[in-house]
Design a protein around this nucleic acid. Sequence first.
DNA 1: CTGCTTTTTTACCATTTGGTAAATTGACGA
DNA 2: TCGTCAATTTACCAAATGGTAAAAAAGCAG
Lengths: 208, 208
Amino acid sequence: MSAENAAPAKKPSRIQLRNRKKILEAALDVFSQHGYRGATLDQIAEQAGLSKPNILYYFDGKEAIHVTLLSKLMETWLDPLHEMDPNGEPLDEICAYVRRKIRMSRQFPRESRLFANEILQGAPRMAPHLESDLKPLFEEKCAVIREWMKQGKINKVDPRHLIFSIWATTQHYADFEAQVTVLTPGEKDIIKGAESYLDTLFRNLLTP
Amino acid sequence: MSAENAAPAKKPSRIQLRNRKKILEAALDVFSQHGYRGATLDQIAEQAGLSKPNILYYFDGKEAIHVTLLSKLMETWLDPLHEMDPNGEPLDEICAYVRRKIRMSRQFPRESRLFANEILQGAPRMAPHLESDLKPLFEEKCAVIREWMKQGKINKVDPRHLIFSIWATTQHYADFEAQVTVLTPGEKDIIKGAESYLDTLFRNLLTP
DNA sequence: CTGCTTTTTTACCATTTGGTAAATTGACGA
DNA sequence: TCGTCAATTTACCAAATGGTAAAAAAGCAG
Protein backbone atom coordinates (compact mmCIF):
# COMPACT_ATOMS: atom_id res chain seq x y z
CA MET A 1 0.00 0.00 0.00
CA SER A 2 2.74 2.44 0.91
CA ALA A 3 5.84 2.89 -1.19
CA GLU A 4 9.04 2.01 0.64
CA ASN A 5 10.98 3.52 -2.22
CA ALA A 6 13.46 6.40 -2.37
CA ALA A 7 10.57 8.85 -2.27
CA PRO A 8 9.23 8.42 1.27
CA ALA A 9 5.58 9.29 0.93
CA LYS A 10 3.80 11.67 -1.37
CA LYS A 11 5.02 14.91 -2.80
CA PRO A 12 8.68 15.84 -2.16
CA SER A 13 8.92 19.42 -0.95
CA ARG A 14 11.12 22.08 -2.45
CA ILE A 15 13.60 21.54 0.37
CA GLN A 16 13.57 17.78 -0.09
CA LEU A 17 14.35 18.17 -3.74
CA ARG A 18 17.17 20.58 -3.17
CA ASN A 19 18.83 18.65 -0.37
CA ARG A 20 18.51 15.26 -2.02
CA LYS A 21 20.21 16.69 -5.05
CA LYS A 22 22.98 18.18 -2.93
CA ILE A 23 23.54 14.86 -1.21
CA LEU A 24 23.65 12.84 -4.42
CA GLU A 25 26.02 15.33 -6.00
CA ALA A 26 28.35 15.13 -3.00
CA ALA A 27 28.06 11.35 -2.86
CA LEU A 28 28.99 11.08 -6.51
CA ASP A 29 32.14 13.01 -5.76
CA VAL A 30 33.11 10.91 -2.79
CA PHE A 31 32.06 7.46 -3.99
CA SER A 32 33.70 7.90 -7.37
CA GLN A 33 36.95 8.88 -5.73
CA HIS A 34 37.16 6.36 -2.89
CA GLY A 35 34.83 3.53 -3.83
CA TYR A 36 31.95 2.36 -1.69
CA ARG A 37 33.82 1.10 1.34
CA GLY A 38 36.37 3.86 1.20
CA ALA A 39 33.76 6.60 1.26
CA THR A 40 32.43 7.86 4.59
CA LEU A 41 29.19 9.55 5.51
CA ASP A 42 31.18 12.33 7.15
CA GLN A 43 32.93 13.09 3.87
CA ILE A 44 29.64 13.13 2.00
CA ALA A 45 28.06 15.30 4.67
CA GLU A 46 30.86 17.83 4.57
CA GLN A 47 30.88 17.95 0.79
CA ALA A 48 27.11 18.46 0.78
CA GLY A 49 27.23 21.13 3.48
CA LEU A 50 24.86 19.20 5.73
CA SER A 51 25.23 17.37 9.01
CA LYS A 52 25.50 13.60 9.04
CA PRO A 53 22.20 13.01 10.85
CA ASN A 54 20.58 15.36 8.40
CA ILE A 55 21.78 13.21 5.55
CA LEU A 56 20.33 10.17 7.24
CA TYR A 57 17.05 12.04 7.42
CA TYR A 58 16.92 12.04 3.63
CA PHE A 59 18.37 8.61 2.94
CA ASP A 60 18.00 5.33 4.78
CA GLY A 61 21.74 4.87 5.00
CA LYS A 62 25.01 4.79 3.16
CA GLU A 63 24.01 1.91 0.97
CA ALA A 64 20.73 3.59 -0.02
CA ILE A 65 22.63 6.60 -1.30
CA HIS A 66 24.94 4.42 -3.31
CA VAL A 67 22.13 2.37 -4.80
CA THR A 68 20.15 5.50 -5.71
CA LEU A 69 23.20 6.87 -7.45
CA LEU A 70 23.82 3.69 -9.41
CA SER A 71 20.20 3.42 -10.48
CA LYS A 72 20.08 6.95 -11.80
CA LEU A 73 23.43 6.43 -13.47
CA MET A 74 22.32 3.34 -15.35
CA GLU A 75 19.95 5.31 -17.57
CA THR A 76 22.55 7.89 -18.51
CA TRP A 77 25.00 5.14 -19.15
CA LEU A 78 22.86 3.11 -21.51
CA ASP A 79 21.49 6.06 -23.45
CA PRO A 80 24.25 6.27 -26.06
CA LEU A 81 23.87 2.59 -26.90
CA HIS A 82 20.11 2.94 -27.06
CA GLU A 83 20.49 5.61 -29.70
CA MET A 84 22.25 3.25 -32.09
CA ASP A 85 19.76 2.98 -34.94
CA PRO A 86 19.27 -0.41 -36.66
CA ASN A 87 18.08 1.42 -39.77
CA GLY A 88 21.00 3.82 -40.00
CA GLU A 89 24.19 3.40 -41.97
CA PRO A 90 26.10 0.71 -40.02
CA LEU A 91 29.57 2.24 -40.06
CA ASP A 92 28.24 5.68 -39.22
CA GLU A 93 26.06 4.34 -36.43
CA ILE A 94 28.95 2.57 -34.75
CA CYS A 95 31.35 5.48 -35.13
CA ALA A 96 28.70 7.85 -33.80
CA TYR A 97 28.28 5.54 -30.82
CA VAL A 98 32.01 5.66 -30.16
CA ARG A 99 31.89 9.42 -30.34
CA ARG A 100 29.01 9.66 -27.87
CA LYS A 101 30.83 7.36 -25.47
CA ILE A 102 34.13 9.22 -25.57
CA ARG A 103 32.32 12.47 -25.00
CA MET A 104 30.65 11.04 -21.95
CA SER A 105 34.08 10.19 -20.64
CA ARG A 106 34.93 13.86 -20.75
CA GLN A 107 31.60 15.15 -19.57
CA PHE A 108 30.89 12.59 -16.84
CA PRO A 109 34.20 11.23 -15.58
CA ARG A 110 32.90 10.80 -12.04
CA GLU A 111 30.00 8.73 -13.23
CA SER A 112 32.39 6.59 -15.23
CA ARG A 113 34.61 6.02 -12.23
CA LEU A 114 31.67 5.26 -9.97
CA PHE A 115 30.60 2.61 -12.43
CA ALA A 116 34.13 1.25 -12.81
CA ASN A 117 34.60 1.05 -9.06
CA GLU A 118 31.44 -0.96 -8.67
CA ILE A 119 32.27 -3.40 -11.46
CA LEU A 120 35.88 -3.76 -10.34
CA GLN A 121 34.72 -4.98 -6.98
CA GLY A 122 32.42 -7.56 -8.45
CA ALA A 123 29.30 -5.40 -8.86
CA PRO A 124 27.94 -6.43 -5.44
CA ARG A 125 25.21 -3.79 -5.49
CA MET A 126 24.64 -3.65 -9.22
CA ALA A 127 24.53 -7.22 -10.50
CA PRO A 128 20.72 -7.14 -10.72
CA HIS A 129 20.81 -3.96 -12.79
CA LEU A 130 23.38 -5.46 -15.12
CA GLU A 131 21.21 -8.49 -15.63
CA SER A 132 17.92 -6.64 -16.05
CA ASP A 133 18.94 -3.44 -17.85
CA LEU A 134 22.32 -3.83 -19.50
CA LYS A 135 22.14 -7.41 -20.68
CA PRO A 136 18.98 -7.20 -22.79
CA LEU A 137 20.19 -4.04 -24.50
CA PHE A 138 23.60 -5.58 -25.06
CA GLU A 139 22.09 -8.64 -26.70
CA GLU A 140 19.72 -6.58 -28.79
CA LYS A 141 22.51 -4.45 -30.19
CA CYS A 142 24.75 -7.47 -30.73
CA ALA A 143 21.99 -8.91 -32.90
CA VAL A 144 21.72 -5.67 -34.85
CA ILE A 145 25.44 -5.61 -35.49
CA ARG A 146 25.46 -9.26 -36.44
CA GLU A 147 22.75 -8.56 -38.98
CA TRP A 148 24.76 -5.69 -40.45
CA MET A 149 27.69 -8.06 -40.84
CA LYS A 150 25.57 -10.73 -42.45
CA GLN A 151 24.46 -8.16 -45.01
CA GLY A 152 28.08 -7.38 -45.77
CA LYS A 153 27.76 -3.75 -44.66
CA ILE A 154 30.71 -4.06 -42.28
CA ASN A 155 33.45 -6.58 -41.65
CA LYS A 156 32.67 -9.67 -39.64
CA VAL A 157 33.98 -9.71 -36.08
CA ASP A 158 32.51 -10.92 -32.80
CA PRO A 159 30.07 -8.11 -31.93
CA ARG A 160 30.50 -8.78 -28.20
CA HIS A 161 34.21 -8.08 -28.36
CA LEU A 162 33.55 -5.11 -30.58
CA ILE A 163 31.32 -3.55 -27.94
CA PHE A 164 33.72 -4.47 -25.13
CA SER A 165 36.54 -2.73 -26.98
CA ILE A 166 34.42 0.37 -27.49
CA TRP A 167 33.60 0.53 -23.81
CA ALA A 168 37.18 -0.15 -22.78
CA THR A 169 38.83 2.40 -25.04
CA THR A 170 36.38 5.20 -24.36
CA GLN A 171 36.04 4.79 -20.61
CA HIS A 172 39.79 4.46 -20.22
CA TYR A 173 40.24 8.22 -20.42
CA ALA A 174 37.97 8.80 -17.44
CA ASP A 175 38.79 5.73 -15.36
CA PHE A 176 42.56 5.91 -15.77
CA GLU A 177 42.75 9.67 -15.89
CA ALA A 178 45.46 9.73 -13.24
CA GLN A 179 47.69 7.63 -15.46
CA VAL A 180 46.80 9.42 -18.68
CA THR A 181 47.62 12.73 -17.06
CA VAL A 182 51.05 11.56 -15.95
CA LEU A 183 51.88 10.24 -19.41
CA THR A 184 50.58 13.14 -21.48
CA PRO A 185 51.58 16.24 -19.55
CA GLY A 186 50.69 19.65 -20.84
CA GLU A 187 47.97 18.21 -23.01
CA LYS A 188 44.93 20.32 -22.25
CA ASP A 189 42.42 18.09 -24.03
CA ILE A 190 43.77 14.64 -24.66
CA ILE A 191 40.26 13.37 -25.34
CA LYS A 192 40.04 15.44 -28.49
CA GLY A 193 42.91 13.41 -29.92
CA ALA A 194 41.36 10.21 -28.64
CA GLU A 195 38.21 10.97 -30.58
CA SER A 196 39.93 10.99 -33.93
CA TYR A 197 42.20 8.08 -33.06
CA LEU A 198 39.27 5.88 -32.06
CA ASP A 199 37.37 6.86 -35.16
CA THR A 200 40.27 5.60 -37.26
CA LEU A 201 40.62 2.48 -35.14
CA PHE A 202 37.06 1.31 -35.55
CA ARG A 203 36.66 2.54 -39.11
CA ASN A 204 39.67 0.50 -40.21
CA LEU A 205 38.36 -2.54 -38.38
CA LEU A 206 34.90 -2.45 -39.88
CA THR A 207 35.40 -1.05 -43.37
CA PRO A 208 35.36 -3.94 -45.84
CA MET B 1 73.11 2.81 9.45
CA SER B 2 70.16 0.44 9.74
CA ALA B 3 67.76 -0.11 6.84
CA GLU B 4 64.20 0.83 7.60
CA ASN B 5 63.17 -0.94 4.43
CA ALA B 6 60.91 -3.92 3.82
CA ALA B 7 63.74 -6.24 4.79
CA PRO B 8 64.18 -5.40 8.49
CA ALA B 9 67.80 -6.20 9.08
CA LYS B 10 70.07 -8.78 7.54
CA LYS B 11 69.19 -12.22 6.26
CA PRO B 12 65.51 -13.12 6.17
CA SER B 13 64.94 -16.50 7.76
CA ARG B 14 63.07 -19.38 6.21
CA ILE B 15 60.03 -18.50 8.32
CA GLN B 16 60.23 -14.82 7.38
CA LEU B 17 60.27 -15.72 3.72
CA ARG B 18 57.33 -18.07 3.98
CA ASN B 19 55.15 -15.77 6.05
CA ARG B 20 55.89 -12.65 4.07
CA LYS B 21 54.87 -14.51 0.97
CA LYS B 22 51.67 -15.72 2.62
CA ILE B 23 50.80 -12.20 3.70
CA LEU B 24 51.44 -10.65 0.31
CA GLU B 25 49.43 -13.36 -1.40
CA ALA B 26 46.51 -12.79 0.96
CA ALA B 27 46.81 -9.03 0.64
CA LEU B 28 46.70 -9.28 -3.13
CA ASP B 29 43.41 -11.14 -2.82
CA VAL B 30 41.87 -8.65 -0.44
CA PHE B 31 43.20 -5.39 -1.85
CA SER B 32 42.33 -6.34 -5.43
CA GLN B 33 38.78 -7.12 -4.40
CA HIS B 34 38.01 -4.23 -2.05
CA GLY B 35 40.53 -1.53 -2.87
CA TYR B 36 42.90 -0.01 -0.33
CA ARG B 37 40.45 1.61 2.03
CA GLY B 38 37.94 -1.18 1.71
CA ALA B 39 40.44 -3.84 2.73
CA THR B 40 41.02 -4.58 6.41
CA LEU B 41 43.96 -6.09 8.22
CA ASP B 42 41.62 -8.62 9.76
CA GLN B 43 40.59 -9.86 6.34
CA ILE B 44 44.19 -10.12 5.25
CA ALA B 45 45.12 -11.87 8.47
CA GLU B 46 42.37 -14.43 8.13
CA GLN B 47 43.16 -15.07 4.48
CA ALA B 48 46.83 -15.52 5.36
CA GLY B 49 46.09 -17.79 8.30
CA LEU B 50 47.94 -15.54 10.72
CA SER B 51 46.91 -13.26 13.56
CA LYS B 52 46.70 -9.53 13.00
CA PRO B 53 49.54 -8.65 15.38
CA ASN B 54 51.62 -11.30 13.72
CA ILE B 55 51.11 -9.59 10.39
CA LEU B 56 52.20 -6.32 11.91
CA TYR B 57 55.32 -8.11 13.07
CA TYR B 58 56.28 -8.62 9.43
CA PHE B 59 55.08 -5.35 7.97
CA ASP B 60 55.09 -1.84 9.37
CA GLY B 61 51.39 -1.39 8.69
CA LYS B 62 48.60 -1.63 6.19
CA GLU B 63 50.11 0.92 3.89
CA ALA B 64 53.49 -0.83 3.89
CA ILE B 65 51.86 -4.02 2.66
CA HIS B 66 50.07 -2.17 -0.09
CA VAL B 67 53.17 -0.33 -1.21
CA THR B 68 55.24 -3.51 -1.23
CA LEU B 69 52.61 -5.15 -3.37
CA LEU B 70 52.49 -2.29 -5.84
CA SER B 71 56.25 -2.11 -6.13
CA LYS B 72 56.60 -5.78 -6.90
CA LEU B 73 53.70 -5.56 -9.30
CA MET B 74 55.21 -2.75 -11.30
CA GLU B 75 57.98 -4.95 -12.68
CA THR B 76 55.62 -7.67 -13.80
CA TRP B 77 53.40 -5.09 -15.31
CA LEU B 78 56.02 -3.37 -17.42
CA ASP B 79 57.74 -6.53 -18.59
CA PRO B 80 55.61 -7.13 -21.70
CA LEU B 81 56.20 -3.58 -22.90
CA HIS B 82 59.91 -3.90 -22.20
CA GLU B 83 60.07 -6.90 -24.48
CA MET B 84 58.90 -4.93 -27.49
CA ASP B 85 61.95 -5.01 -29.74
CA PRO B 86 62.84 -1.89 -31.76
CA ASN B 87 64.65 -4.11 -34.25
CA GLY B 88 61.81 -6.55 -34.79
CA GLU B 89 59.13 -6.46 -37.45
CA PRO B 90 56.89 -3.56 -36.33
CA LEU B 91 53.49 -5.12 -36.91
CA ASP B 92 54.55 -8.40 -35.33
CA GLU B 93 56.10 -6.65 -32.36
CA ILE B 94 52.93 -4.72 -31.60
CA CYS B 95 50.63 -7.69 -32.08
CA ALA B 96 52.90 -9.82 -29.91
CA TYR B 97 52.70 -7.12 -27.24
CA VAL B 98 48.92 -7.19 -27.41
CA ARG B 99 49.03 -10.97 -27.05
CA ARG B 100 51.29 -10.81 -24.01
CA LYS B 101 49.03 -8.24 -22.39
CA ILE B 102 45.81 -10.12 -22.94
CA ARG B 103 47.40 -13.26 -21.54
CA MET B 104 48.39 -11.38 -18.43
CA SER B 105 44.77 -10.42 -18.03
CA ARG B 106 43.91 -14.08 -17.82
CA GLN B 107 46.89 -15.15 -15.77
CA PHE B 108 47.04 -12.24 -13.32
CA PRO B 109 43.56 -10.77 -13.02
CA ARG B 110 44.06 -9.83 -9.37
CA GLU B 111 47.18 -7.89 -10.18
CA SER B 112 45.31 -6.09 -12.93
CA ARG B 113 42.51 -5.14 -10.57
CA LEU B 114 44.90 -4.03 -7.86
CA PHE B 115 46.51 -1.73 -10.36
CA ALA B 116 43.17 -0.50 -11.69
CA ASN B 117 41.91 0.21 -8.19
CA GLU B 118 44.93 2.31 -7.42
CA ILE B 119 44.76 4.32 -10.63
CA LEU B 120 41.00 4.78 -10.36
CA GLN B 121 41.45 6.47 -7.03
CA GLY B 122 44.03 8.85 -8.34
CA ALA B 123 47.13 6.70 -7.73
CA PRO B 124 47.75 8.24 -4.28
CA ARG B 125 50.37 5.65 -3.36
CA MET B 126 51.73 5.01 -6.83
CA ALA B 127 52.17 8.35 -8.53
CA PRO B 128 55.95 8.31 -7.90
CA HIS B 129 56.25 4.87 -9.50
CA LEU B 130 54.27 5.99 -12.52
CA GLU B 131 56.54 8.95 -12.94
CA SER B 132 59.81 7.10 -12.40
CA ASP B 133 59.15 3.68 -13.93
CA LEU B 134 56.22 3.79 -16.29
CA LYS B 135 56.69 7.19 -17.90
CA PRO B 136 60.24 6.74 -19.22
CA LEU B 137 59.38 3.36 -20.69
CA PHE B 138 56.20 4.75 -22.20
CA GLU B 139 58.04 7.59 -23.86
CA GLU B 140 60.80 5.30 -25.09
CA LYS B 141 58.35 2.97 -26.76
CA CYS B 142 56.33 5.84 -28.18
CA ALA B 143 59.50 7.01 -29.87
CA VAL B 144 60.14 3.53 -31.25
CA ILE B 145 56.64 3.32 -32.67
CA ARG B 146 56.87 6.82 -34.09
CA GLU B 147 60.07 5.84 -35.86
CA TRP B 148 58.37 2.76 -37.34
CA MET B 149 55.65 5.00 -38.66
CA LYS B 150 58.11 7.45 -40.12
CA GLN B 151 59.72 4.57 -42.00
CA GLY B 152 56.32 3.65 -43.41
CA LYS B 153 56.33 0.21 -41.79
CA ILE B 154 52.95 0.79 -40.17
CA ASN B 155 50.17 3.34 -40.50
CA LYS B 156 50.54 6.67 -38.81
CA VAL B 157 48.48 7.20 -35.66
CA ASP B 158 49.23 8.85 -32.34
CA PRO B 159 51.39 6.23 -30.58
CA ARG B 160 50.17 7.39 -27.17
CA HIS B 161 46.58 6.64 -28.01
CA LEU B 162 47.65 3.38 -29.61
CA ILE B 163 49.23 2.24 -26.37
CA PHE B 164 46.30 3.50 -24.30
CA SER B 165 43.92 1.49 -26.45
CA ILE B 166 46.06 -1.63 -26.07
CA TRP B 167 46.05 -1.27 -22.32
CA ALA B 168 42.34 -0.51 -22.19
CA THR B 169 41.20 -3.37 -24.38
CA THR B 170 43.40 -6.01 -22.81
CA GLN B 171 42.93 -5.09 -19.16
CA HIS B 172 39.19 -4.77 -19.65
CA TYR B 173 38.73 -8.53 -19.43
CA ALA B 174 40.31 -8.67 -15.98
CA ASP B 175 39.09 -5.36 -14.55
CA PHE B 176 35.50 -5.64 -15.76
CA GLU B 177 35.29 -9.40 -15.40
CA ALA B 178 32.06 -9.13 -13.42
CA GLN B 179 30.39 -7.38 -16.32
CA VAL B 180 31.93 -9.56 -19.01
CA THR B 181 30.74 -12.65 -17.17
CA VAL B 182 27.16 -11.39 -16.99
CA LEU B 183 27.13 -10.56 -20.70
CA THR B 184 28.80 -13.69 -22.02
CA PRO B 185 27.35 -16.53 -19.95
CA GLY B 186 28.45 -20.08 -20.54
CA GLU B 187 31.60 -18.91 -22.26
CA LYS B 188 34.36 -20.86 -20.57
CA ASP B 189 37.22 -18.84 -22.05
CA ILE B 190 36.12 -15.51 -23.43
CA ILE B 191 39.70 -14.30 -23.48
CA LYS B 192 40.55 -16.77 -26.21
CA GLY B 193 38.10 -15.01 -28.49
CA ALA B 194 39.38 -11.64 -27.35
CA GLU B 195 42.87 -12.59 -28.43
CA SER B 196 41.92 -13.11 -32.05
CA TYR B 197 39.56 -10.13 -32.09
CA LEU B 198 42.23 -7.78 -30.79
CA ASP B 199 44.74 -9.14 -33.25
CA THR B 200 42.37 -8.22 -36.07
CA LEU B 201 41.62 -4.84 -34.51
CA PHE B 202 45.21 -3.68 -34.30
CA ARG B 203 46.35 -5.38 -37.49
CA ASN B 204 43.69 -3.56 -39.49
CA LEU B 205 44.61 -0.30 -37.86
CA LEU B 206 48.31 -0.54 -38.55
CA THR B 207 48.56 -2.40 -41.84
CA PRO B 208 49.18 0.15 -44.60
C1' DC C 1 -0.24 35.05 15.52
C1' DT C 2 -1.03 30.02 16.35
C1' DG C 3 -0.58 25.31 16.07
C1' DC C 4 1.23 21.68 13.45
C1' DT C 5 4.55 19.54 10.46
C1' DT C 6 9.04 19.35 8.46
C1' DT C 7 13.83 19.98 8.99
C1' DT C 8 18.06 20.40 11.62
C1' DT C 9 20.99 20.01 15.52
C1' DT C 10 22.89 18.01 19.77
C1' DA C 11 24.38 14.41 22.21
C1' DC C 12 25.20 9.86 22.11
C1' DC C 13 26.16 4.55 20.84
C1' DA C 14 28.04 0.18 19.36
C1' DT C 15 31.15 -1.68 16.17
C1' DT C 16 35.00 -1.77 13.43
C1' DT C 17 39.63 -0.89 12.56
C1' DG C 18 44.64 0.04 12.56
C1' DG C 19 47.84 -0.48 15.85
C1' DT C 20 50.62 -1.55 20.45
C1' DA C 21 52.69 -3.64 24.87
C1' DA C 22 53.84 -7.33 27.10
C1' DA C 23 53.73 -11.98 28.04
C1' DT C 24 54.28 -16.66 25.93
C1' DT C 25 55.90 -20.05 22.95
C1' DG C 26 59.03 -21.93 19.53
C1' DA C 27 63.49 -22.56 17.03
C1' DC C 28 68.09 -23.53 17.21
C1' DG C 29 73.10 -23.18 17.95
C1' DA C 30 76.62 -23.99 21.60
C1' DT D 1 70.27 -29.38 27.89
C1' DC D 2 70.21 -24.77 28.14
C1' DG D 3 70.10 -19.97 26.90
C1' DT D 4 68.99 -16.70 23.58
C1' DC D 5 66.68 -14.63 19.97
C1' DA D 6 62.81 -15.00 16.73
C1' DA D 7 57.97 -15.68 16.30
C1' DT D 8 53.31 -15.70 18.12
C1' DT D 9 49.52 -14.85 21.10
C1' DT D 10 46.75 -12.30 24.49
C1' DA D 11 44.79 -8.40 25.97
C1' DC D 12 44.16 -4.05 25.05
C1' DC D 13 43.64 1.09 22.92
C1' DA D 14 42.15 5.29 20.60
C1' DA D 15 40.12 6.89 16.65
C1' DA D 16 36.86 6.48 13.06
C1' DT D 17 32.48 5.17 11.40
C1' DG D 18 27.52 4.09 10.50
C1' DG D 19 23.69 5.03 12.86
C1' DT D 20 19.92 6.68 16.51
C1' DA D 21 16.93 9.37 19.93
C1' DA D 22 15.22 13.32 21.20
C1' DA D 23 15.20 18.11 21.59
C1' DA D 24 15.29 22.48 19.12
C1' DA D 25 14.44 25.32 15.16
C1' DA D 26 12.30 26.57 10.91
C1' DG D 27 8.30 26.50 7.62
C1' DC D 28 3.94 27.19 6.74
C1' DA D 29 -1.40 26.73 6.38
C1' DG D 30 -5.24 28.75 8.71
